[in-house]
Design a protein around this nucleic acid. Structure first.
Lengths: 192, 192
DNA sequence: CTTATTCTAGAATATTAATTCTAATTAGTA
DNA sequence: TACTAATTAGAATTAATATTCTAGAATAAG
């Protein structure tokens, strides 16, 4: 029933991710994304109500992928060594999915969400708060003594790896050698 | 000779810094900056040829302040302990000059420079490459054995502190407790 | 084979914000 | 006191892009 689609939502998200990674969300215009996707402008609005909604979807898609891997690692972590794996997810992710990595680690979240409809914003906020909760839980388990455990864990497992890959992104993918540096730094940050 | 100025360049830079820190460079419109400075739109263009030129000046001003302190520390560093002071400059700077700190550490450099005239861009590039050179020199002195010394130093003294304060900025100023975490992490990153 | 439906297609319009322009002030100077 | 230069002041214009609108195609159902 109806004309078959040539352009699917996933195509637009992929195209928008690439453009946003390359030029930044501010320069990811509807025209540029449409061109990258090989779609006419009209089809963009057939899929997404606004540019803001599409950009939000780009961030959310990337964040969901990262978040699910991160929480899987965190949930099964038995000791500090296992936590370090969570810190290493950031460079790993940046290598495995460069466009999503650049979206998440070389641009600002708000630049993807500022123009988003309320519904998308709520979905994004849920992702962030889920991650916060998991960090709090892990802090309770692994850093029981520290009243600021969640902050410390956030710095060690998110902030430090983020800052380290940020030195290289978006021009280059983070080189493999920094993984050891990230691991050592995260470990030190955890060891009070 | 001529009507005395009510609005000075520094006023516009300060106003633009505040707005850019609060809303991000993309939302720092000429109208918003003019309002913050109590200046009419016309006066903006009397001082700066374009919005891009003004935003570039905001970043350059902040980067010059940070850079001069950073290179002073780096130049006189005798041992690893002294290098750690360079890593701590990031949280210190974010506390002492919150607007400049947010400009440098909570936003993207390119979002301040993408629309800048060539002359401003060149000035900004010079600041960046000066810092690169200083890092390379310090790497030679302090990490003589490491072929990737400059990268490691960049990660330890810039990337890690940046990522750590980024966990808090721009909502809050980085709390004093993270300084010890940053110091430990930077030290670990240096001690291969 | 006609019709309803879904989608492509891109031109036309609307919106937002940067920039330019014209006029009005103010202070020194001849 | 006129005159000139520097600046304020903000309205008018322009430019860039997001969004809407109107048509045209393609498919399945009846």
């Amino acid at each position: 029933m109806g004309r078959p689609a040539r352009i699917f939502p996933a195509d637009l998200i992929n195209a928008a991710s690439k453009i946003a990674a390359r030029l930044g969300p501010a320069r990811a215009t509807i025209a540029a994304i449409a061109k990258e996707a090989g779609a006419p402008i009209g089809s963009m609005y057939h899929r997404y109500p606004s540019r803001g909604a599409l950009l939000a979807e780009v961030w959310i898609t990337a964040a969901e992928r990262f978040g699910s891997q991160f929480s899987a690692i965190l949930a099964t972590a038995r000791d500090t060594d296992a936590l370090i794996e969570a810190a290493l997810l950031t460079p790993h992710f940046a290598r495995e999915d460069p466009a999503a990595g650049v979206v998440l680690f070389a641009h600002r979240r708000d630049d993807f969400l500022d123009e988003a409809p309320a519904e998308s914003r709520a979905r994004a906020a849920k992702l962030v708060s889920a991650l916060q909760k998991e960090l709090a839980g892990a802090a309770k388990r692994h850093l029981a003594g520290d009243p600021r455990g969640r902050e410390r864990l956030a710095v060690a497992l998110i902030g430090i790896p983020y800052g380290a890959v940020r030195v290289f992104l978006p021009q280059a993918v983070p080189p493999p050698e920094i993984d050891a540096v990230i691991a050592a730094a995260a470990r030190a940050a955890l060891a009070h």
